Simulated assay, not measured.
Amino acid sequence: MNFVGTFDGDNHTISNLKITNTSTYSGLFGKTSGTLKNFTLKGNITLSADSDMIGGVVGYADGSTISNVTSYVNISNTEGTLKHIGGVVGGIDNKNTVVDKCVYYGTLNISNSHDCIGGIVGYTNAGARISNCANHGTVTTSEAGAYTGGILGYVNNSNPTIKDCYNFGTVSNGDSTQSYIEQDESNISTGEAVSVCVVISSLLLIISVLVIYFCTKNGKRNSIHSSE
Score class of each variant (00 low, 15 high):
159 N>C: 14
64 S>E: 03
208 S>V: 10
65 T>V: 15
178 Q>S: 11
226 S>A: 10
222 N>R: 12
150 G>M: 05
215 C>M: 08
135 N>P: 03
216 T>D: 05
68 N>T: 11
5 G>Q: 05
209 V>R: 11
137 G>N: 01
11 N>T: 08
145 G>L: 07
153 G>K: 02
6 T>N: 09
149 G>L: 07
31 K>N: 07
10 D>S: 12
21 N>Y: 05
152 L>Y: 03
66 I>Q: 00
112 N>P: 15
75 I>Q: 03
47 L>W: 03
171 V>A: 00
90 G>A: 07
212 I>Y: 03
223 S>G: 13
93 D>Y: 15
32 T>S: 14
34 G>D: 00
28 L>N: 01
35 T>D: 05
20 T>L: 13
137 G>M: 02
198 V>N: 07
217 K>E: 10
173 N>H: 05
13 T>I: 13
127 G>H: 12
198 V>H: 09
47 L>K: 03
151 I>C: 12
117 I>R: 04
35 T>E: 09
218 N>M: 08
78 T>G: 15
187 N>H: 13
30 G>E: 00
76 S>G: 14
11 N>C: 11
152 L>A: 03
194 V>K: 04
155 V>A: 01
156 N>F: 15
142 S>C: 06
182 E>F: 05
62 D>I: 09
51 S>L: 07
121 V>K: 00
87 G>I: 01
131 S>T: 01
216 T>V: 14
11 N>M: 08
143 E>T: 13
83 K>V: 06
184 D>C: 03
142 S>K: 04
133 C>T: 04
110 I>Q: 00
145 G>W: 05
164 D>A: 03
71 S>E: 09
183 Q>Y: 04
191 G>D: 07
102 C>R: 01
170 T>E: 10
211 V>T: 03
118 G>H: 04
145 G>E: 04
226 S>T: 12
